[in-house]
Design a protein around this nucleic acid. Structure first.
Lengths: 213, 213
DNA sequence: CGTCCTCTTGAACTATCTCAACAGTAGTGG
DNA sequence: CCACTACTGTTGAGATAGTTCAAGAGGACG
């Protein structure tokens, strides 16, 4: 049952990018917010690199809880798995552009799969340290710092993910995430803006780092 | 400073295994309990496979807390990193035998590094799900199940690691680990034995699995 | 026999979760 | 244009689970 959907989904992809790309040599896939890239149980036929936007990788537990394993921003790779069947879900968080590479056929441009795997391993280990922090404020501080590191030049940046995404990433509830954000605001560490309070302006980076220690 | 210690440590290894191995072609390293295999900051010159015993991989945070990233049992590989400098510590939990493989020189027996990296990535992702569980009992149940899976044939097995190891692995305190173990005992899911209560006899595997859901 | 270490248990505290209400925004349709 | 709905984020109050601090039990070892 899963496999049929997987193949169907994959074969949809060419049509997908034909609609959005002018040049035939441009292999990028464009996705709207919350669009699915792949789902658990599908055949793993390709790996992806984020050209623009952001992606969430998550799993669903048997009791229906969602655990976000990682967020992938510009330049990051995802979709490389040990088996040939997907163990998780991948969705675009916002409007997103991807490049896909089939893993079964020999790549024209050789891809360093080992490097990608080790980078993702390092990311996963780093995240383990974050969610092992017992304090919610510490976890959120670490998360904000991680997000801020992706925009080193900008004074203000868009997190793009919802409070619910952040909660499922940090192993907290939406309410504690919101409360921790107001604590960061009260401490004058950051300022929130935008329609859904997802625009972050860092006021005191040192204080933020001090929190994560 | 770290590098000097690294090289010194590495050059100690041959002497180490000469003392314990009769045959010169036997490349296995023997370690006593709590002996260090490598430390943060050292040069990463080799990867290891556990032949017997168990290993803990951990990091120390700036405030001195220890976070155990993974336990490696028989057959498992560790020590493969993205950079050429160690980012974590590796220690033998009990009496342990390892095989080491230098990563810089061409291996006589080709090792599938990608497979090792992806296996470790899958392990790290699985652990993320465990420690994202909010209940301490669920986390411990998942841990016990993971340990039990390494001894599918035995009715009773030795966890080997201390309560403190388990606490630092699950992101809990020693006390809650102990309390959760007594809860598992009270629920007649397992029985503990041995001098430090590290021998586990599973009485109700289904109830254990039910807890992890 | 005393010391050390690990594990366990108790009691108080604290942080997070849960349940609930409300505010702001966007989209819909009269 | 204005209700109406839907969704997201915030805040409050009480319940709950884990931490912290403290003490004690049991084994190992000199």
């Amino acid at each position: 049952m899963f496999q049929d959907r997987a193949i169907e989904k994959y074969t949809m992809v060419p049509g997908h990018h034909q609609g959005t790309c002018a040049s035939p040599k441009d292999q990028s896939i464009k996705l709207r917010a919350d669009e699915t890239i792949y789902s658990e149980g599908e055949y793993a036929l390709a790996i992806y690199q984020v050209e623009a936007g952001a992606v969430r990788i998550y799993r669903l537990t048997s009791n229906g809880q969602r655990h976000i394993l990682s967020f992938c921003g510009k330049g990051e790779w995802f979709g490389l798995e040990s088996g040939n069947v997907r163990t998780d879900f991948a969705e675009a968080i916002c409007e997103t552009r991807l490049r896909s590479f089939r893993t079964n056929q020999e790549a024209v441009v050789p891809i360093d799969l080992l490097h990608i795997a080790l980078t993702n391993l390092a990311k996963a280990q780093c995240k383990q340290l974050i969610i092992s922090e017992q304090s919610a404020l510490k976890r959120l501080a670490a998360f904000v710092q991680e997000m801020a590191d992706r925009h080193p030049e900008d004074a203000e940046f868009d997190m793009m993910m919802s409070r619910s995404d952040i909660a499922d990433y940090l192993g907290l509830t939406v309410e504690t995430v919101a409360r921790s954000f107001t604590k960061l605001r009260e401490k004058r560490i950051l300022r929130l803006a935008g329609k859904s309070q997802r625009m972050v302006r860092l006021l005191d980076r040192d204080a933020l780092i001090a929190l994560t220690i």
